[in-house]
């Protein structure tokens, strides 16, 4: 094809069919449907990264606001795009607030252990204490690789690192978590 494209049409010898750009109302509806479908996944990911519900909601909102602003190019594959923004926003937040907001083990509230099995509060306590042992980068890798269940290639793409880095970081982080959560045959938290 030859010719010079100008404002969605070609000026030259070839004829190019160009679809009309979608209306804003259509884009908004599309974006709203995307939010409805993936809000749960995004909030789950954000919660694993920050360990607190209101921070997770704040993070998801900021990620979605930015995705909305780039919807014209994000809409072809919006979930990875939003997830990448979310992880990078987490980075931004660390940079801007100048302090980690990961909850340190000593700051975790004590929870009563239910003798009949792990309660949600107990499971949350165990999980967040263990995740707090990881560095931010390790935590991002663990969350995306094991808890959100992405492939190593997808994690590498989301974090902008090599697949080999994901492999080594994931392996090292998992060892840390196994040590923190108790490396027994029942698995972490006795939930198997």
């Amino acid at each position: 094809m030859t010719g010079v494209r100008e404002e969605g049409r070609d000026v030259g010898v070839d004829v190019v069919l160009v679809a009309a750009p979608p209306r804003r109302a259509d884009l908004d509806a599309e974006f709203t449907a995307f939010m409805a479908e993936h809000m749960g996944t995004l909030r789950y990911t954000a919660w694993l990264l920050v360990g607190e519900g209101e921070h997770a909601d704040e993070l998801v909102q900021q990620a979605l606001v930015r995705t909305y602003g780039a919807w014209s190019r994000a809409r072809t594959d919006p979930l990875p795009y939003t997830r990448r923004v979310l992880v990078n926003l987490r980075t931004d937040a660390w940079r801007r607030h100048r302090r980690e907001v990961l909850t340190a083990p000593d700051e975790m509230p004590d929870t009563r252990v239910d003798a009949t099995g792990p309660s949600q509060a107990e499971a949350r306590d165990r999980l967040l204490r263990a995740l707090a042992q990881l560095t931010p980068h390790q935590r991002r890798v663990v969350v995306l690789r094991y808890l959100v269940d992405l492939s190593e290639a997808d994690v590498a793409a989301d974090l902008g690192v090599a697949v080999g880095t994901v492999k080594s970081t994931a392996s090292r982080s998992l060892a840390t978590l196994r040590a923190a959560l108790g490396d027994d045959s029942d698995g972490p938290g006795g939930v198997r």
């Binding site: 908004d28 974006f31 709203t32 939010m35 409805a36 809000m39 749960g40 995004l42 909030r43 789950y44 919660w47 694993l48 519900g53 997770a56 909601d57 704040e58 998801v60 909102q61 979605l64 606001v65 930015r66 995705t67 909305y68 602003g69 792990p118 949600q120 499971a123 949350r124 165990r126 999980l127 967040l128 094991y146 808890l147 269940d149 978590l177 959560l181 029942d186 698995g187 972490p188 938290g189 939930v191 198997r192």
Partner: peptide, 25 residues
């Protein structure tokens, strides 16, 4: 097993208000 633990631990929520997200966007 860790994935099962994390899902058991997750306190589900609605997330941010979609209308607020669009307006802020």
């Amino acid at each position: 097993a860790l994935r099962l633990l994390s899902r058991a631990a997750y306190p589900a929520g609605d997330g941010p208000d979609p209308a607020l997200v669009v307006r802020a966007g």
